[in-house]
Each structure stands twice: as structure tokens, then as C-alpha cells.
Amino acid sequence: MALLDPITRRRFKRFCSIKRGYYSFLLLLGFIVFSCFAEIFVNSRAVVVVYKGDWYFPTYGAMKPGTAFGLDYGYETNYRELKAKFEMNKDTSEGWVLLPLIPYNPLENDLVEGIYPPSAPDFSRSHYLGTDNSGRDVAARLIYGFRICIFFALFYVLCNYTVGVSLGALMGYSGGRFDLIMQRLIEIWSNIPFLYVVMIVSSILAPNFFTLAIIMVVFGWMHMTWYMRTAVYKEKTRDYSVAARALGAKPQRVIFHHILPNAVSTIVAFVPFSIAGAIYSLTSLDYLGYGLSPPTPSWGELLAQGTGQLDKPWIVMSVVCALVLVLTLVTFFGEAIREAFDPRKHTVYE
């Protein structure tokens, strides 16, 4: 396995020794893991409700109507009100509620008559970063927006690389007429302005997570082909791949089992930057209103709201800080990876 070979092991060691990149990676990983469990920390549903001696954990699973806790409505319980009610009637000790850190979900509108959204950060109402144009909690939208954004980026990059790497490798391996034709096709395809086309297509389709990613892949896979093509061209003339072919290995096997592991450094060094690019693209699309359809929590949409009203600085500040932080972390991580995978560090002249 590629992971275990001494060169790879040395590369990882080198990566860990580049502290800035390494800690950035850990932090980023921490954020991603945290966002996966965001429902526990940022949610309108309580973490624990104890009502008449029974314990409830409403975070995951089916919604609990208000009637389940002795309230007079059949829709989903408002746990903040439930908590307030329990605290009001402390002496009857009906039970207690443990709310998450941020007791709002990213979609609900916390609207109080007389307070017009967007409202400034208010710790007493647990809006730590204030609310947006429709009274939704900015912090909650930021966190769920991050989850969508980062997984979108990962999914996008995965699809992009699968297509780009396979085609690039095939071009490099086959060479000749196939390579020539594909090169011209890619050149033509690359000249289609990416954002514009995605905007046009998504304004017609009203895309969801997967369709938007696919649309973006259709117009964005070209980039990786060039690097892979060159790398494979170089590798296929090496002795080991010639040997593999001589033993009768099929092109598929030669490309994916022999050449690809040796060209992996090219790919890996690009991944973090592609992720940053994907985050940037999604945010731009959302900013312009052509990304994921509302009310999906999104950084781009927050940014658009924020720049539309610079006199409500909490919106734009939150999202700009978050964006800068994440993109910086990804970039540090990327730099460290590139450094660690730089072949010049491992060349041994004999």
C-alpha cells in the first residue's frame, strides 16, 4: 500500500513537522467534526428534557409536538419557551430543560414584535452574533453554513478529481490522436466562463446540493487533466511501468495501480487549494443568488446580506472573519502538504 511505503511515511513525518500547517489541519479537522455534531450544540431542539420524571433526548429523531410536554399546540415544541415555562413554575417542579449552547436552528425566525431584524448581538437572547434580515441567528447559520460549504467542497473536489485524474491519466497514457483531440476539446471547454455558465444553468434549474455540485463539476473538471497528463507521460516511460506492461497488465491496471501512486504527490498538493477554490466558488454563487436555493444556510447569502447593510456590521463581520479563518487554515494546510510532498526533498543522488 502506498500509505505504508517509506517515502510516504517520510512525507507524513515532514508534514507533521511543519507546525503551522499541521495545527491548521488539526483545527480544520476539529471544525469539521464539530460541525458534524452541530445539532447538539446549535439547535432549537433541547439536548435533554426531563418532564414528569421521564427523560427525553429530542436532538435526533422525530419531532415532538408541544402536547408531549403539556403545551397546547400540536406542532414542534418550542424548547426555549418550555424552559421559560418550567423556570416560571419552579415550585411545581414539572421538570427541566437543557438547551444547546446556541438554542436556535439555522432556519427558524426569532421574531419578536417591536424588534425588527436584523438585530445586534444580544447575549441575553443567546444571539451571540446577532440575527439576519429575517431574524435568523447568524451564529447558527454560520456553523451550519460551514458544514454545508465544507462538505460541498469535499464532494465537489472528489468528483472533480475523479473525472480530471482519470481523463488526464488516460490522455497521458494513450497519447497520440486521443490525447490530441482531448487536448483541443479541453481547451475549448476551458474557455467557457465557469461562474457565468453555472449561474445561467442554476438560475434555470433551482439546484440542490448534489445537482449544483454536478453542474460545477461539468464545467470545472478540466484543470487537473493537464497535470495528470504530464505526470503520466513522464511515468509511463519509467522502467516499472514498462515492466508492468511487459507482464501483460491492462492499461487500467497500469494507470491506477502503478502510475497513480507515483503521481500522487501532484494530486495531493493540489487538493487543499482546490477545496479553498470550491468554498470560494460556492460562496460567490450564493452571494450572487445563484447557489443553493433558500433557505439553505449559506455564507454567500450572509455576505450578500451583510454587504447590503454595512450599518449592521455584525452580519458582515461574522461571515468575513469566518471566511478568512477557514481559507487561511486551508491555505496553511495546503502549503505544508506541498512542502512535505515536494519530490526535491527526497531525491537521492547516487
Partner: peptide, 30 residues
């Protein structure tokens, strides 16, 4: 885009009655 804040409130309130509104913003011409 300007109508989004109103519609997300409709959506959230309609849920209380068990109705799901699936918001679909399209380009004006579309």
C-alpha cells in the same frame, strides 16, 4: 431575492400547521 425574508417566515410558520413549503427561487424570466 428581496422576497426571501418574507417567504422563509411563511415557510417556518406553515410547518406549524404541518405544511411544507419548498421555496424555489428562479431567475425572473424563468
Amino acid at each position: 431575492e428581496q422576497h426571501t425574508p418574507r417567504l422563509v417566515i411563511f415557510k417556518e410558520e406553515a410547518r406549524k400547521a404541518g405544511l411544507e413549503l419548498d421555496l424555489q427561487i428562479l431567475d425572473g424570466t424563468m
